[in-house]
């Protein structure tokens, strides 16, 4: 256990070294946030909808940019994928650690370190923006606490799903296509492309029990009070259930793959 923890720490510190690329990403984050404020502003000036208030969607937009690296789905770890295709996975297997946990920790640490460098400046800029386009404060103190919990659980869940997609590379040499298709479908169902409340009602119902909505959409809406406290607690319970299911499935797939894996040469 100590080994896993210290590996997490090592990866986290390694990830925090990429300061310049994080700063370079900030300009893009500001631009996208402001642009979506303009777009939603244009739509909301015409009509208001019961599903989501203008204030909630602007807050959603800023939070999404702030925690983009934490919740980004199309995030492939090329080290892991390459080690599977070129056979260096054999070295990894020689370690006295469980490979699933090892890689899981690697992806998780990468996500947290990338988000850690970026989220604060975006939040600060969001807070000082002129009135209708600013990031508003959390709806209430409990909803802020629930937001933090659900955001972290969302990242834990996302890394579990990413592990499943990464282990597909064991079964096929051409993982690029499958990887890209599955992450794209996830993006659409998770509110990444457009917030879930803006999707047609029937799609909202369909996505309700799926895990994708819980990756980030639910957290941002808890923050703004678009999801009230009882529903937020329900969402967090659902997140925990999905985390268990996804990690068990990922673990089984990986074990199955590792049983069949044969490494040639050395």
């Amino acid at each position: 256990m100590i080994g896993y923890l210290s590996y997490f720490k090592v990866r986290l510190i390694a990830g925090l070294q990429y300061k310049v690329s994080a700063i370079a990403g900030l300009a893009t984050a500001f631009f996208w946030a402001i642009m979506f404020c303009c777009i939603y502003g244009a739509f909301y000036s015409n009509a208001t909808i019961p599903d989501m208030s203008f204030k909630a969607i602007i807050t959603y937009t800023w939070l999404k940019q702030a925690f983009l690296s934490l919740t980004y789905m199309n995030d492939r770890d090329s080290e892991i994928l390459n080690s599977i295709t070129d056979g260096t996975v054999a070295y990894e297997l020689a370690r006295p650690y469980n490979l699933f946990s090892w890689w899981y920790i690697k992806i998780l640490a990468h996500k947290f370190s990338a988000a850690f460098l970026k989220f604060l400046p975006v939040i600060l800029v969001g807070l000082i923006m002129p009135k209708p386009y600013n990031l508003s404060l959390p709806n209430s103190f409990p909803s802020f606490i629930l937001f933090v919990i659900s955001l972290i659980l969302g990242a834990v869940l996302l890394c579990g799903i990413l592990m499943i997609i990464h282990s597909i590379a064991f079964f096929t040499i051409n993982h690029k296509g499958i990887f890209s298709i599955s992450t794209n479908v996830m993006m659409l169902l998770s509110g990444f492309v457009i917030p879930i409340p803006l999707l047609p009602n029937i799609v909202q119902k369909l996505t309700f029990y799926l895990p994708f909505r819980l990756l980030s959409d639910s957290s941002y809406r808890i923050y703004s009070g678009n999801i009230n406290i009882p529903d937020a607690i329900f969402d967090i319970k659902l997140q925990l259930i999905w985390i268990v299911i996804i990690i068990v499935i990922g673990y089984l797939i990986m074990n199955k793959a590792l049983k069949k894996v044969s490494v040639q040469g050395g």
């Binding site: 739509f43 794209n184 799609v203």
Partner: peptide
Amino acid sequence: FNLIFSVVVILSLYNKF
């Protein structure tokens, strides 16, 4: 998917607004 996303976003927004 790139184009699908764009069309889905526009259709959803028109559906709502």
